[in-house]
């Protein structure tokens, strides 16, 4: 692996901006298109939204129908770079890459993207990436380049062939050994600072052992407002619905993010609803994230430990609240 010293992040932003659109987090919070000549400062930490929407669009058109023919409306994005994807979100993208491997709309966007990771040096609020093998160090095979803040500058690590090619023409100096050692020390220090995660380990075990009783799930079902905050912000949630719209002799089918926590998610036209119980839907969400059944198919759990569900849930049934509850009820 090649490591470079990067004095100014703007050097990288300007260089990548010559051949691609560059998106960067503004501070730690929001994704915005970066002005390559004057990029915003970059801080580690959890963005409000993950990078999910860059590939699995919140809503998009599938096709247009003119009365005789269907025309597939695949996205044709210009090449783009995402600078500052946290390690947990990189793992989530790798997870969705597997899930949407045959989805032409997802892949049309994904194949145009260069992922520049950003490793955290302090735990974020509610985050628990080490518990689910998703951080704070960027996991192998999830990025093209990785940034790590060292002193006043950055350690830039090349993690893919695409990443190596993207740096061609940029005059960088190889990072000294001390920078790499400092990265390791900072990551180890960060990992030590994460709060105790025993409730998550116990909760996952209870979920898989099937020892959580129905009334516990149903109590949490009462707390679920079906607001879809968790499923929208979860970087691995992937459910969608489709709907036809008519305008000016053209019918368009669009797809949009859906949520397994909506009571009508599985309801059929006959009104038969296999998941009409709110507790069953809450169980479904957590089963999808932490079941060993899915782990066999995907090689890992469907949760990357970002903690967004805990931060957003108005009903207090995010990750920590749920795991504390189910680890105590058996």
């Amino acid at each position: 692996m090649i490591h470079y010293r990067l004095a100014e992040l703007a050097e990288l932003t300007r260089h990548l901006g010559r051949t691609r659109q560059v998106w960067q987090r503004s501070g730690a919070k929001e994704w915005c298109q970066a002005d390559a000549s004057n990029p915003p400062p970059l801080e580690a930490g959890r963005s409000v939204q993950s990078a999910k929407g860059f590939f699995f669009a919140e809503q998009e058109h599938i096709f247009e129908f003119d009365g005789r023919y269907f025309r597939e409306t695949l996205p044709k994005p210009a090449p783009f770079a995402l600078i500052g994807v946290s390690s947990c979100d990189l793992v989530a993208i790798a997870y969705q890459d597997q899930f949407f491997a045959s989805d032409p709309h997802y892949q049309a966007r994904r194949q145009q993207a260069l992922l520049v990771g950003l490793e955290c040096t302090v735990p974020c609020e509610h985050g628990f990436c080490p518990t689910v093998d998703a951080g704070p160090a960027a996991r192998p095979g999830t990025s093209d380049l990785v940034l790590h803040p060292v002193g006043n500058g950055w350690l830039l690590t090349v993690t893919s062939e695409q990443g190596r090619k993207s740096l061609q023409g940029l005059n960088l100096t190889t990072a000294p050994e001390a920078m790499k050692q400092q990265r390791q020390a900072q990551l180890a220090d960060c990992e030590r600072q994460f709060p105790d995660d025993q409730h998550i380990r116990d909760g996952v075990q209870a979920l898989n052992a099937g020892t959580v009783n129905a009334s516990t799930w149903q109590q949490m079902g009462v707390q679920c407002l079906s607001c879809s905050g968790c499923t929208s912000l979860c970087p691995t949630c992937s459910c969608y619905g489709v709907q036809d719209q008519s305008a000016d002799q053209t019918i368009t089918r669009r797809r949009f993010w859906d949520s397994c926590l909506y009571d009508g998610f599985q309801r059929e036209a006959s009104q038969h609803n296999p998941s009409d119980d709110a507790g069953a839907r809450v169980y479904r969400f957590w089963y999808h994230k932490f079941s060993d059944d899915f782990r066999k198919d995907f090689g890992r759990y469907g949760c990357v430990g970002c903690g967004r569900c805990e931060a957003t849930c108005p009903g207090v049934i995010g990750i920590h609240s749920v795991m504390k509850r189910i680890s105590q009820h058996d």
């Binding site: 899930f99 949407f100 045959s102 989805d103 992937s238 459910c239 969608y240 619905g241 489709v242 797809r255 859906d258 397994c260 998610f265 599985q266 309801r267 059929e268 038969h272 296999p274 479904r284 089963y287 999808h288 079941s291 059944d293 899915f294 198919d297």
Partner: peptide, 19 residues
């Protein structure tokens, strides 16, 4: 079985039955 389906490609999630 009968289920609500939006894609038939195993991605929309609506027809889930366990995993």
């Amino acid at each position: 079985l009968e289920r609500r389906m939006h894609c038939a490609t195993g991605t929309c999630g609506h027809c889930y039955l366990s995993h």
